[in-house]
Design a protein around this nucleic acid. Structure first.
Lengths: 210, 210
DNA sequence: TCCAACTTTGGAGTAGACTCCAATTTCTCT
DNA sequence: AGAGAAATTGGAGTCTACTCCAAAGTTGGA
């Protein structure tokens, strides 16, 4: 799960390097704390002292505590994009690609359950009643790409466009993931596999007029 | 959208009646405020004064601000149960029943978009990383009941049990609703109808071995 | 080397959620 | 009517997120 703090690569003075370093330290400290204690139970002061900076410094780097979640959400999306790019490159069948993507995604999530939950909530919450959701669309993109690819190959139904099918697929996966995320002991692997197969079944079957 | 504050019907002294009245007043005030300003932007003091009680009184009735959301979530589930009971009673086809249920549900939600969003988030959030989600299961129940009915009638596929299919159906509907809730101007009617038809298509089509 | 720009930091201060408590009001029951 | 239980209320106090500011430290460049 890449986090977005590593962007500009080359021409950085010691100054900016330090700054990024601090920012990164805060981010990582927060990530660890959120994952172990949850968001609400984690104090800005705790984050600051875990990152070994003064409390005031925190606000030099992040507008507020919530901004950390947004950054983590960005990280998730980046990771998802990376995974998709990797799996699209491969030459397996459409179904196998989707399976692989979902397997990879679940591998990413597993060790960071708690943060994953927070991010999932963030995805829904972020879409304030005023602006269209940014995350939700970006989450769909990778799936849509993969499905479109599958449609072109003739593997997936094309009575709906890829975006719509992606939304349906993500919806189904989501409900499985949501359940998993909230129940620490549930057998994700198994549940997720079942849902994945169902999704494939739905995607593959061409529609007949009702 | 019934709210759960109306339970015990008969033997109430003036005292308990007053108490429920106050509770109800606070609940309604909060509901209105949440719907117009959102949760975070609404102050406990505001709620109290809108309900015409002292700020301290608020905490006599609700453990905290968040408890109001939980109560609203309960209300949603109750409403959903009611709707389902009503629609199960009817004698239409399985497909028609599902369409009717979803239509009713969307009618309930439409005038309370903002609160609906909060409640949706609550559904996901509530499942703390420690206890299994209570709401998520209860949300599925009505759909599962309806689907099971359809399976018995031979209208729906039965290669998976009703609970699983319900989860898939709710997942798909959810992703449509989530999108709608965050985009004030999106044509819910249309999107929801499209998704509903897709869900029906998925439910009706019996699976063939892959 | 020294200045200007930027960062960190401590400290004071605000707002809102929530607790605790004692005084007061409201109801119930006799 | 009057005692006792329960609810309301105001007030003081805590905790945390977050803002503002001035002092002090760090860095890059002339």
């Amino acid at each position: 799960m890449a986090h977005p703090t590593q962007t500009a690569p080359a021409p950085l003075g010691r100054r900016e390097r330090r700054k990024l370093e601090v920012r990164e330290r805060i981010y990582l400290a927060a990530h660890a704390l959120f994952d172990s204690k949850g968001f609400d139970a984690t104090t800005v002061d705790e984050i600051a002292s875990a990152a070994d900076v003064a409390p005031a410094t925190f606000f030099n780097h992040f507008q507020n505590k919530h901004a950390l979640l947004e950054m983590m959400a960005d990280g998730v999306i980046e990771t998802l994009d990376d995974l998709t790019a990797r799996h699209l490159a491969g030459s397996a069948s459409s179904a196998e690609r989707l399976r692989a993507l979902i397997r990879s995604a679940s591998d990413e999530i597993r060790p960071r359950r708690r943060v994953a939950r927070l991010v999932l909530i963030e995805f829904i919450r972020e879409a304030g009643p005023d602006q269209p959701s940014a995350y939700l669309d970006r989450i769909l993109e990778p799936f849509a790409a993969l499905i479109e690819e599958g449609q072109r190959a003739g593997d997936f139904r094309d009575d709906h466009d890829a975006a719509f099918l992606a939304q349906m697929a993500v919806g189904m996966l989501n409900s499985a993931i949501a359940r998993w995320l909230s129940d620490p002991d549930s057998p994700v692997e198994q549940g997720l596999v079942e849902v994945t197969e169902f999704v494939l079944n739905v995607l593959q079957r061409p529609s007949e007029p009702t």
